[in-house]
Design a protein around this nucleic acid. Structure first.
Length: 456
RNA sequence: GUGGGUGUAGCUCAGCUGGUAGAGCAUCGCGUUGUGGUCGCGAGGGUCGCGGGUUCAAGUCCCGUCACUCACCCCA
């Protein structure tokens, strides 16, 4: 016989970039998700879910150096020649836009256009994690795609939906920065700079490395001092109204694409002014890394937490979904739910008022009468009151403490009343009153855990 | 992938130029045969990330490795 296994502690360690929440935190996150879903549905977006995997070549197709961030999926038992390679293999999706584009192509015959959908799912990116950046996280996307042409007013609608969701969440002040790819593109071309992508990438670093460094990089990239100045001048324009148009005009550059972009961006900003004053800001430095964006691009930051990066972004894409014959242009915006929630948890003290959905703990007097407690619980549940029955017929003090630890506001005592009926105690105030499980009304504010923030 | 930092109890951390582990908080128990939170007393919980080396002796010094973390890249 082998010696008895020594009780050695099993080491469990977190995996970097795969965040997990405590119960109260998860309840808070669910609240955030509920609000987002509700707003999306109020705007008529239909729910959709796509599989977690796509062919690797499809995931690779639409991005630049996306290959590094894609997680491949293989069976552990697969033969070695089936593994390792990416060609023909499967990968976990790194966003919800690319899978959605595929979905549209695959089901185009059975969808009605313009097609509005929302999608809330986890995505995976094999990046180096750090604060606010994860390898597994949840995105909540809305997109609209149409056949052939996409009306421009949709580009104004997307950020307004996000703004509405954010207004219902304890995120504080926020700004949705908006730009149109055609503005810098036309501007650069008008200046004689042909490397639009390269220039955009440099400009995108502006808030990180500063104007001086950006100027150096532009000069290294072959721009003249004058061109670099103009590029920086454009990027410095940021207005909450349509006055950015005159400011761009004042720079004296002209190009047909620039005109198009300015008109489109002005329309978006104007809609924002009317429907969500102060939330949409034209920021001509916003570039967005993904190169499938062709028109309006969005980026959202919470005021005071700009260093956490964007908590919602997106844009218009005209050729992401195309089968070669028909193209389905779209526009969408994504809320980085995990980043947003982690930010609120870390910086705003976001939490739930309790760590369980239960509003009531039904006490158990002794094990012989547990059935009576079960009956009480059933009556409460039948009327929509979340509750649980105490795990043990311990001293009442312990049962109350059980509820207190979890933030459960009420403890129900079967048979505690003079007449043999029940009593319910609000353990926050200590008030204990006679009650009947078939008629007791739980105060609405206590029915579900509430979400609170403790920091400004 | 590149570079820096850090690994000691569930959490936050002490532990001096080497002498075989400690605090606070948390958890559980008792004080309180059933009504909590305060308070008091007590208990459990550590192969000091892992492996190797130096030494009579390593949490402490050296090498390696892994993990976490920060920055770059990129992005929600």
């Amino acid at each position: 016989m082998p010696a008895p296994e020594s009780a050695r502690a099993v080491k469990v360690t977190p995996i970097s970039g795969f965040p997990e929440l405590l119960p109260a935190e998860r309840l808070a996150e669910l609240h955030v998700l509920d609000v987002i879903r509700e707003v999306f549905e109020l705007h008529g977006f239909t729910p959709l879910e796509t599989r977690a995997v796509e062919p690797v070549e499809r995931l690779l197709g639409k991005g630049g150096d996306a290959d590094k961030e894609i997680y491949g999926v293989t069976r552990l038992a697969a033969r070695s020649d089936e593994r390792g390679g990416t060609d023909g293999g499967l990968g976990l999706h790194f966003d919800l836009t690319v899978p959605f584009a595929r979905y549209v192509l695959e089901h185009a015959g059975r969808l009605h256009f313009p097609f509005r959908r929302y999608q809330v799912q986890r995505v995976w990116r094999g990046e180096r994690p750090q604060e606010g950046r994860y390898r597994e996280f949840t995105q909540a996307d809305i997109d609209v795609v149409d056949v052939g042409e996409l009306p421009p007013h949709l580009e104004a609608e997307m950020p307004l939906v996000v703004a509405e969701a954010f207004r219902r969440l304890p995120v504080g002040e926020f700004r949705i920065l908006v730009n149109n790819r055609k503005v810098p593109e036309g501007f650069y071309l008008g200046l004689g700079l042909t490397d639009v992508q390269g220039t955009l990438r440099v400009v995108d670093k502006l808030d990180k490395i500063g104007a001086e460094k950006v100027r150096d990089l532009l000069l290294e990239g072959g721009a003249t001092a004058e061109q670099a100045e103009q590029v920086l001048a454009l990027a410095s324009i940021r207005t909450a109204d349509t006055s950015f148009v005159e400011r761009v005009r004042a720079l004296g550059v002209s190009h047909p694409t620039l005109d198009e972009g300015l008109a489109a961006l002005a329309a978006v900003v104007r809609a924002g002014e009317e429907q969500a004053p102060g939330t949409l800001v034209a920021d001509l430095a916003i570039a967005r890394g993904l190169d499938y964006y062709t028109g309006t691009v969005y980026e959202t930051q919470l005021v005071g937490a700009e260093d956490w990066g964007s908590v919602s972004s997106g844009g218009r894409y005209d050729s992401l979904a195309s089968d070669g014959r028909t193209t389905y242009p779209g526009v969408g915006i994504s809320i980085g739910v995990t980043r947003l929630v982690q930010l609120l948890l870390a910086r705003r003290g976001l939490t739930a008022t309790r760590s369980t959905p239960a509003a009531v703990l039904v006490a158990v007097v002794d094990e012989e009468s547990r059935r009576r407690s079960d009956t009480v619980a059933a009556a409460l549940r039948a009327r929509g009151v979340p509750c649980e029955v105490a795990p043990a017929a311990a001293r009442f003090g312990k049962q109350i403490r059980y509820a207190d630890r979890r933030g459960i506001p009420y403890v129900w005592f079967p048979g505690a009343a003079e007449d043999g009926g029940d009593q319910v105690k609000d353990i926050r105030s200590g008030a204990q009153t006679d009650a009947d499980a078939t008629t007791w009304v739980c105060p609405p504010a206590d029915l579900r855990p509430a979400v609170v923030v403790t920091a400004p």
